[in-house]
Each structure stands twice: as structure tokens, then as C-alpha cells.
Amino acid sequence: MKILLRRIGLLMSVFLCSVIIFSTANTYAASIGSRLETPEDGWERYNDTAKQIKYIGTGWGYSENVSGRYKGDGHYQLGPDISGKVMFKFLGTKLRLMSFCA
């Protein structure tokens, strides 16, 4: 019985080590609140001034040379104006928005 338990323990150890060593999971994904300096594999990054993004309605402001923002600029809503909308023109199955929050 002791030999059987020892062999099972050894097999489990080898299996666990194999999973850890040969795992291809990306453990470097961004989390909320962390800074993502470069796009992750398979993602393309666009600045908010890209022609594929349109700002519709009123209440939009734009700032330049702001530290901490991607490429130093950004659009923002001036107030609680509900007529401001953003339209994205892209071909794909996923869209991830990254935003600065004050």
C-alpha cells in the first residue's frame, strides 16, 4: 500500500510539473487599473484620432500633450450631455476600449 501511494504521488508530481513547464497560457494580460504599454498579441491599437472613430453630437472636448494618456491626447465629454456618441468602424469580432479616468 505504501509503495502504491508513493508511485501515485510521484506520477502526480510529474504531471503537475509538466503542466507548469509546458503551459502556453498568457499570464501577462492586463488587468483593470494596470498600464498596458504595448498591445497584446493579436490586438491592434488605434488612437482616438483614428479615422475609424467618429465623435457624434455635442459636448466633446479634446486635449493634447497630457502625460499618462496614449500618445498624449484624448477626447472627453465636457459634461453630462447625453447627445454625445462614439461610432467605431472596424471589421472584427472583439473591441476593447481603454480609457483614462480622472
Rank of each mutant, 00 (worst) to 15 (best):
E64P: 02
F15E: 06
S31C: 09
S63M: 02
K54E: 12
S34N: 15
G42I: 01
A102T: 01
L11Y: 06
A102K: 01
I82K: 08
L97Q: 04
Y62R: 11
F90R: 13
V66M: 13
D48K: 02
E37M: 02
L95Y: 11
C101Q: 08
S13R: 07
L97W: 11
V14C: 12
Y46P: 07
S13E: 02
T93K: 13
M98H: 14
G72E: 04
M12L: 15
I21D: 07
S13T: 05
L91D: 12
L97R: 03
G79Y: 07
T38V: 14
L11Q: 00
I20Y: 10
D48M: 07
Y62M: 02
F15C: 12
S83W: 10
Q77I: 11
I53A: 10
M1K: 06
E40H: 08
Y55I: 05
L78G: 11
D48Y: 02
R35F: 02
S13M: 07
I56A: 10
T93S: 15
R45A: 15
Y46G: 06
K54L: 10
M1G: 08
D41E: 13
V86S: 05
R96P: 03
H75F: 15
A102Q: 09
S99A: 12
D73F: 09
L78K: 14
D81E: 15
L4W: 05
G79C: 06
L16P: 09
K89E: 09
G92V: 03
W43R: 00
C101H: 07
M98P: 04
D48G: 08
P80S: 15
S83V: 14
F22D: 01
I8K: 02
L36C: 06
K85F: 01
G33F: 01
Y62A: 06
G61R: 07
L78I: 07
D48P: 13
I82L: 12
R45T: 13
G59F: 03
A102R: 01
T38Y: 08
Y70G: 02
A29G: 06
W43C: 00
V66I: 00
A50F: 05
F100C: 11
Q77P: 10
R6T: 14
S99W: 09
L95P: 03
E64H: 01
A50E: 04
D48W: 14
K2R: 00
N26P: 01
A30T: 09
L91Q: 15
W60D: 09
P39R: 02
Y55C: 14
V19I: 12
G59H: 05
G74W: 05
A30D: 12
R35I: 00
L11G: 11
D73Y: 03
I21G: 13
T27W: 03
I20S: 07
L36H: 05
I21Y: 08
Q77K: 11
K54M: 12
T38K: 09
K2W: 00
Y28C: 08
Y46F: 10
E44C: 15
L36P: 03
M98R: 13
G59D: 02
F15R: 06
H75E: 09
F88T: 06
C17V: 10
I32A: 08
G74F: 00
E40P: 12
L5Y: 04
S18E: 06
W43H: 09
S83H: 10
T24D: 09
Y76T: 00
V14H: 04
S83R: 13
L97E: 12
S83P: 11
G33L: 00
A30G: 14
L95M: 14
G57M: 12
A25N: 15
S63R: 15
